[in-house]
Lab assay of single mutants.
Amino acid sequence: DELEKRVKKIARKLNLSLDQVEEWLKRNNNDELVEAVKRLKKK
Score class of each variant (00 low, 15 high):
residue 37 V to F: 00
residue 19 D to N: 07
residue 11 A to Y: 01
residue 15 N to R: 09
residue 5 K to R: 14
residue 43 K to E: 09
residue 3 L to P: 06
residue 17 S to T: 13
residue 2 E to G: 08
residue 12 R to H: 12
residue 37 V to Q: 02
residue 19 D to A: 10
residue 11 A to E: 01
residue 32 E to D: 11
residue 25 L to A: 14
residue 10 I to R: 01
residue 25 L to W: 02
residue 17 S to W: 10
residue 13 K to S: 13
residue 13 K to I: 15
residue 36 A to K: 02
residue 4 E to N: 03
residue 16 L to A: 06
residue 23 E to W: 05
residue 14 L to D: 01
residue 1 D to I: 12
residue 1 D to Y: 08
residue 10 I to N: 00
residue 4 E to Q: 06
residue 27 R to G: 13
residue 10 I to C: 14
residue 37 V to Y: 00
residue 21 V to P: 00
residue 23 E to L: 03
residue 32 E to L: 11
residue 11 A to P: 01
residue 9 K to N: 14
residue 19 D to T: 08
residue 9 K to I: 14
residue 31 D to W: 15
residue 34 V to N: 05
residue 13 K to E: 15
residue 4 E to L: 07
residue 29 N to I: 08
residue 14 L to G: 04
residue 5 K to G: 07
residue 22 E to Y: 10
residue 38 K to T: 04
residue 34 V to Y: 10
residue 23 E to H: 04
residue 11 A to S: 05
residue 14 L to F: 12
residue 16 L to W: 11
residue 42 K to L: 06
residue 19 D to C: 11
residue 22 E to L: 14
residue 3 L to G: 07
residue 29 N to V: 08
residue 35 E to S: 05
residue 17 S to D: 13
residue 29 N to M: 12
residue 38 K to E: 09
residue 19 D to R: 04
residue 26 K to E: 10
residue 37 V to H: 02
residue 8 K to S: 09
residue 18 L to S: 02
residue 35 E to L: 07
residue 3 L to K: 05
residue 33 L to Y: 04
residue 29 N to Y: 10
residue 1 D to Q: 10
residue 30 N to F: 15
residue 3 L to Y: 11
residue 25 L to E: 00
residue 34 V to F: 08
residue 24 W to A: 03
residue 20 Q to I: 05
residue 7 V to K: 03
residue 3 L to V: 05
residue 21 V to G: 00
residue 33 L to E: 02
residue 10 I to L: 11
residue 28 N to E: 11
residue 32 E to R: 09
residue 41 K to H: 05
residue 2 E to M: 09
residue 10 I to M: 06
residue 42 K to H: 07
residue 8 K to T: 10
residue 21 V to F: 08
residue 6 R to G: 01
residue 3 L to Q: 12
residue 14 L to V: 03
residue 18 L to P: 04
residue 20 Q to H: 04
residue 41 K to V: 07
residue 34 V to E: 10
residue 18 L to A: 03
residue 26 K to Y: 06
residue 12 R to A: 13
residue 42 K to E: 14
residue 38 K to Q: 10
residue 39 R to P: 00
residue 24 W to I: 11
residue 41 K to G: 03
residue 41 K to L: 12
residue 32 E to F: 08
residue 32 E to A: 12
residue 2 E to A: 12
residue 3 L to R: 06
residue 11 A to N: 01
residue 28 N to K: 10
residue 43 K to I: 08
residue 38 K to N: 06
residue 20 Q to R: 06
residue 22 E to R: 04
residue 17 S to N: 11
residue 8 K to I: 15
residue 25 L to G: 10
residue 33 L to A: 02
residue 13 K to C: 15
residue 31 D to Y: 14
residue 13 K to N: 13
residue 25 L to D: 00
residue 7 V to W: 04
residue 28 N to F: 13
residue 24 W to Y: 13
residue 4 E to A: 07
residue 25 L to F: 14
residue 31 D to N: 12
residue 38 K to P: 01
residue 20 Q to Y: 06
residue 12 R to E: 13
residue 20 Q to C: 13
residue 15 N to T: 03
residue 22 E to D: 05
residue 40 L to M: 09
residue 39 R to T: 04
residue 43 K to F: 10
residue 36 A to H: 03
residue 29 N to Q: 10
residue 7 V to I: 12
residue 39 R to Q: 08
residue 13 K to Q: 14
residue 26 K to N: 07
residue 8 K to L: 15
residue 7 V to C: 06
residue 28 N to M: 15
residue 43 K to Q: 09
residue 31 D to Q: 14
residue 42 K to G: 09
residue 9 K to T: 13
residue 31 D to V: 14
residue 21 V to Y: 03
residue 23 E to N: 07
residue 24 W to D: 01
residue 34 V to I: 11
residue 40 L to W: 06
residue 6 R to L: 15
residue 12 R to G: 07
residue 17 S to K: 04
residue 39 R to A: 08
